[in-house]
Amino acid sequence: MGTVVSVDVRGLEDPAADDALRSVFSWLRFVDETFSTYKEGSEISRLGRGELPPADCSPDVRFVLDACERLRTETAGYFDSHAAGSLDPSGFVKGWSVEVASSMLADRGSTNHCINAGGDVRVRGVPEDGRMWNVGVVHPHDRSALTTVVAVRDAGVATSGTAERGAHVFDPFSHEPVTDLLSVTIVGPELAYTDAYATAAFAMGHRAPEWLATLANHESYVIDAGGFAWWTPGFVRYAPALVGS
């Protein structure tokens, strides 16, 4: 899936920390084997080529396909696992696999950790007593700079934007690159959905703020092509410095 993952576990000693990390990376390897569109033999590739009937897919794949379908409906078609022309559920798989990884860590005693998968972040607990995880949001025009910092615990933080490799998000209807927005950051309870919503919102372009405001339990921060920032009222809970701007 072209993603690199880092896991930061706090307050757990070996061998428990080693065991927890090993389980997580073993899971991530399994996810990649199963869902990679780059591997010809992966279930997703075989499914996409029509060699594997959907009914014969593993429970994980069926779960992901169902979730993608629900997200497509929920986002009025802007989250589309077929946007690239062939089946590619990566937009859900990345966040979901990290979400599962975080649960695995918690089950193994790691109640304070931070997982970063290619700039999409899931945190649990706190990094140290007395403060929350500070997640910097990269500046869309200057990737060495931050545009804001959110302080979170038990949350997913996903940023969708063009900063990564030039314009790479396409409007699933017009098939044109989306240029209305520079970045969309969403904070919510589960990374699987914050990531998918951020992708969908970015594709919505100028209609994104209106849609984002309807999402319960998710707070958003959007920067448009003019460099103007917009955020949901609840977002300042995570970024108090925005108050009074």
Partner: peptide
């Protein structure tokens, strides 16, 4: 340093500099 986002964001970014950053959302 924020250079291009609306000027009123600069205060926010300056304040952000004093925070210890644990991780970064968005690719760099």
């Amino acid at each position: 340093i924020s250079q291009t986002v609306a000027p009123w964001l600069k205060d926010e970014v300056l304040k952000a500099q004093s925070a210890q950053i644990d991780t970064i959302s968005g690719a760099t």
